[in-house]
Simulated scan of single mutants.
Amino acid sequence: MLIVNQEVIDPALVEDAFQRIKTQAEMVSQVSCCERDDEFLLQAQDEVIDGILLAQEAERRHQHIADEIFRPAFEMALRQWRENGASWDLIESHRKEIREETLAGLRMETFTRMLFFDLVVPDDGELLAYYNLHQLDYFTPPAVHALHLVRFPDQTQMWADYSLLLNVREIVLAGVEEFSHLAKIHTQKVNQEIDLDWISMERLSHPFESILFSLREGEISPIIHHENALHLVFAYEVKRAEQKPFDALRDEISHKIMLEKKQAILRALASELRAQAVILGSAIEEPNPVEA
């Protein structure tokens, strides 16, 4: 059980944060990250503790919310419940909960507005410096119009299909026949389709894409073994990566800088609050001891 300044924390908050953090990591790496579960759990618990400390501080600083601010927000919350299909009886049974959630939201809005009051919108110099420092974040990814030949070999006797693709590759490299013609003849796709159309770079960690986007226009790939199949791809057309122009990114970069500044302020305050807080227990379950 996790307790922060005498407030018992719902373990579901940590579980939700853990699932989000793990999902984001797996989307980036394109591989399962189960071996990092302990790391993600600790990160999730720290994130929840910081959020609770900030919410407690918001309530301490802004305990009273003026009725003219609270009432419209509360009425809007009730309408949203109704629009989402809740009956009036259900809404009435949760009225206290809705009221407390509305107050908490208004306190946090007031709290953060005061915290961020002195933040200044970045000028052109700051925007340009950020753009130059993070240029790799601002580009149009490359794309390839790819043709594809696939074989599904017997895994115990792969040489027959592998040697066939070797021969296809040699013929194309020698300029004797076009890849499109040979792919149509030899593909084992059910519909005989060889045109993958335009593929934009999304997952460079994927073995197929890491090779595909290294090809020049008119170039054939080496043989790729992936998911129990053998592949050849041909770069029919190529669009190289392009740097996005600074002028088109001003608003996006300004928003990013402001967001990072706000997050830094919240992290710094959470760190100060943590130093004074009484935090007991943990939301992370300890593994059962292994019997000897």
Rank of each mutant, 00 (worst) to 15 (best):
Q6W: 00
V8D: 02
I21E: 12
I21P: 05
A25F: 05
C33D: 06
L42W: 13
D46T: 12
E47W: 01
I49G: 02
D50N: 14
G51L: 02
A58E: 09
A58P: 04
R61E: 07
D67P: 08
E68W: 05
E68P: 04
F70D: 09
F74N: 09
E75Q: 15
L78F: 10
Q80T: 14
Q80V: 13
R82E: 15
R82G: 02
N84E: 10
A86M: 11
S93G: 05
R99Y: 07
E100H: 04
L103D: 01
G105C: 02
L106P: 03
L106V: 02
F111M: 06
T112L: 12
F116Y: 14
L119Y: 04
P122V: 04
D123M: 03
D123I: 01
G125R: 12
G125H: 15
L128D: 02
L128Q: 11
A129K: 07
A129G: 01
F139C: 07
F139K: 11
T140N: 00
H145R: 14
L147Y: 15
H148F: 08
M158I: 12
L164S: 04
L164R: 10
L164W: 13
L166T: 06
V168A: 05
I171E: 10
G175L: 06
E178Y: 06
F179Y: 13
L182T: 11
L182Q: 05
A183V: 01
K189C: 07
N191Q: 05
I194C: 12
L196H: 03
L204V: 01
L204N: 04
S205N: 09
S205P: 00
F208R: 12
L212H: 01
L215W: 07
E219N: 08
I223M: 08
I224N: 11
I224S: 04
A229H: 00
A229T: 00
L230Q: 13
L230P: 09
V233Q: 03
Y236S: 00
E242G: 07
I253G: 07
S254I: 01
H255S: 15
L259I: 07
I265V: 07
R267L: 11
L269Q: 04
L269S: 02
R274M: 12
S282W: 01
A283I: 03
